[in-house]
Amino acid sequence: MPVLMYHSVNARPLRATRRLAVDPGAFADQMALLADRGFTPVPVSTLADRPGRLPARPVVITFDDGYADFHERALPVLDGLGFAATVFVTTGWLADAGTQAAGAPLDRMLSWPQVREAAAHGIEIGGHSHSHPQLDQLPDAALDDELTRNKGLLEDRLDRPVTTMAYPYGYSSARVRRAAARAGYTSACAVANRLPRDEHVLALPRLTVRQGMDLGTFARLVEGDGVLRTYAFDRVLTKGYAVVRRLRYAVRQAGS
C-alpha cells in the first residue's frame, strides 16, 4: 500500500520549498490516475485503528507542514474526487498563530479557519510539531513540549481527537517514537521512501512526491514497481545521515 508524501502544491514555489513542490496540474493528473486505477484513499489513522478493514486498493495521501496552497489547490481536487487525505499541521507556523507563533515558516501557511474547513470536508488533521524542529536532537522536556503543545492546540481548535502525526524532516528515533506515544499519538509517519511492510504504526514509511516526477513514474510507484530504483540515492543518504544524527545527539548528551 503506497503512502504518499506531498508538501506544497504550487506552480511558482519559493526557493525554500521548490524541491518538494508539485505543480497543481501534475497533482490533479496524479489524483485522476489514482481514481482511474481504482485506488481508494484512506487517512493515516485508519492504518492503526482499522487495519483489517482496508479497501481493496488502499492508498494514503499526506501533506506535510500545512501550506496555504493545500487549501487553494489541493483541497478542491480531493473534494471533487471524494478523496480522503491527511494534512500534518505545524501549529506555530500557521498564518494566524498569534502569540503561539514559533519557528520559521518556509512559505504562506494555512490559517486556523482553513484548517477547520479542511477538517469539515473530511480531511484528517494530524500533528507536525509546534515549531518544526529536528525532534531527535531535542532534550526530553523540549521534545515532549513540541508534541503535546501541537496536539493540544489542534484538538482545542478542532474540538476532536488528533491521533496521528508526522515527524518534521522525517527524523525520528526510538526515543522520539516513545515520546509520540506518550503524547497520545497512535500512528506516525516517517519518510523512508519505501512501501510499508510490517512497520510499527509509529514509524510508517512514505514515498516522496516531488517536483518533476512524471506521471509514468508516479504510476509505477503506486503500483509498487521501481520503488527501490527511484529512491536509491535518497535511501543511501537517509541511512548515512541517520548515523550522523545519532552520533550528534550522543555527543550533545555527553556534554550536557
Rank of each mutant, 00 (worst) to 15 (best):
R177W: 04
A188Q: 04
A179R: 01
Y171C: 10
G170T: 11
A190T: 15
S173M: 04
R178Y: 04
R175N: 02
N193M: 10
A180L: 06
R177T: 05
P196E: 13
R178K: 14
R182F: 14
A188V: 07
D198E: 14
V176I: 10
R175T: 02
L195E: 08
A180S: 09
Y171W: 08
P196Y: 11
C189K: 07
R175D: 01
R197T: 15
S187K: 11
V191G: 02
R177V: 10
A174S: 14
D198T: 14
A180T: 06
R194M: 08
R178G: 12
A174Q: 09
S172C: 13
R175V: 02
L195P: 12
S187C: 15
A180D: 07
A188C: 08
R177I: 06
G184C: 01
P196W: 07
S172T: 15
C189F: 05
A183M: 03
A190Y: 09
A180K: 06
G184T: 00
R177G: 05
G184E: 00
A181V: 01
V176Q: 08
R182P: 08
S187H: 11
V176D: 05
R197Q: 15
C189L: 14
S173F: 07
A192E: 11
G184I: 00
V191E: 03
V176A: 06
S187Y: 09
E199H: 13
G170P: 05
G184F: 00
N193S: 10
A174I: 11
A174P: 09
A190D: 13
A179M: 03
V191L: 11
T186S: 08
Y185P: 00
G184V: 01
L195H: 07
T186P: 00
R194F: 05
A183Q: 01
S173I: 05
G184A: 02
L195W: 06
A174L: 15
R175E: 02
A174D: 14
A190L: 14
R178L: 15
A188S: 04
V176W: 03
V191M: 06
A183V: 06
V191R: 02
V191D: 03
L195A: 09
T186F: 00
R175C: 02
A190N: 13
Y185E: 00
C189H: 11
G170A: 05
L195I: 06
C189Y: 08
V176Y: 03
D198W: 09
A179T: 06
V191A: 12
A183G: 02
R197N: 12
A183H: 03
A181E: 07
N193I: 10
N193V: 10
A183W: 01
Y185D: 00
Y185Q: 00
P196V: 11
R175G: 00
L195K: 07
N193D: 14
A192H: 09
G170Y: 08
A180P: 07
G184M: 01
S187M: 12
T186C: 05
R182M: 13
P196D: 12
A181R: 14
L195M: 10
Y171F: 13
R177D: 06
L195R: 11
R177S: 04
T186G: 06
N193L: 10
A181Y: 04
R177A: 06
S173A: 05
A192P: 01
A183S: 05
S173H: 03
R175P: 01
S172I: 07
R175L: 02
R182C: 14
P196Q: 09
R175M: 01
R197Y: 10
C189D: 11
A188F: 06
E199C: 10
D198P: 07
S173G: 05
R178A: 15
